[in-house]
């Protein structure tokens, strides 16, 4: 079937199988490998992208459902060489180790800060509770999201 959607601000269209999962459209069809997958039951959050600004698990959304909707992936966070404060915060606060959960965490946290620019630690923990990190024990992720919240308006810098 034909599909036309917006990914990272660009209109994309093409022919896909109705059963194609959004995560595969992003990774295979568009070649955006920053979105990962880690399970088959929508429990791990590695595949989180934004759909109309809300984080969704792209392993449990059909590409076909995205017709006319806007998708944002981790690749959209850095703009013209400027990192998103969350990206910077994850680096500053050692909020990643193997890096596999990082894109999903970043997108989940992006949506949180867009809605709640000054979240408490508990609000951050709740917001990321649909995403599993096996490496960090979450503490530094919470700290990184706080860092980003505090630096949202500050000058973004290249690593």
């Amino acid at each position: 079937m034909d599909i036309s959607t917006t990914v990272n601000g660009e209109q994309v269209s093409g022919e896909v199988e109705p059963r194609q999962l959004l995560v595969h459209f992003i990774r295979e069809t568009l070649g955006l490998k920053g979105t990962h997958w880690g399970c088959d039951t929508s429990n791990c959050g590695a595949c989180v992208v934004l759909m109309d600004g809300r984080p969704v698990k792209s392993c449990t959304v059909l590409t076909a459902m995205c017709e006319g909707h806007e998708i944002r992936t981790v690749e959209s966070l850095e703009v013209d060489g400027e990192l998103d404060p969350l990206q910077q915060g994850f680096h500053e606060r050692h909020a990643l180790q193997c890096g596999f959960c990082t894109p999903g965490m970043l997108m989940t946290a992006r949506a949180l800060l867009d809605e709640n620019p000054d979240p408490t630690d508990q609000e951050i923990r709740t917001a990321i509770s649909g995403a599993i990190c096996r490496c960090t024990g979450y503490q530094n992720i919470v700290s990184a999201v706080r860092w980003a919240a505090e630096h949202e308006s500050a000058t973004k810098q290249e690593i």
Partner: peptide, 17 residues
């Protein structure tokens, strides 16, 4: 701070899949 972060925070790691 870690050198490897630069690629991971951009979703530019290269995992097997």
């Amino acid at each position: 701070k870690r050198k490897e972060d630069a690629r991971f925070i951009r979703g530019k790691g290269t995992y097997l899949d």
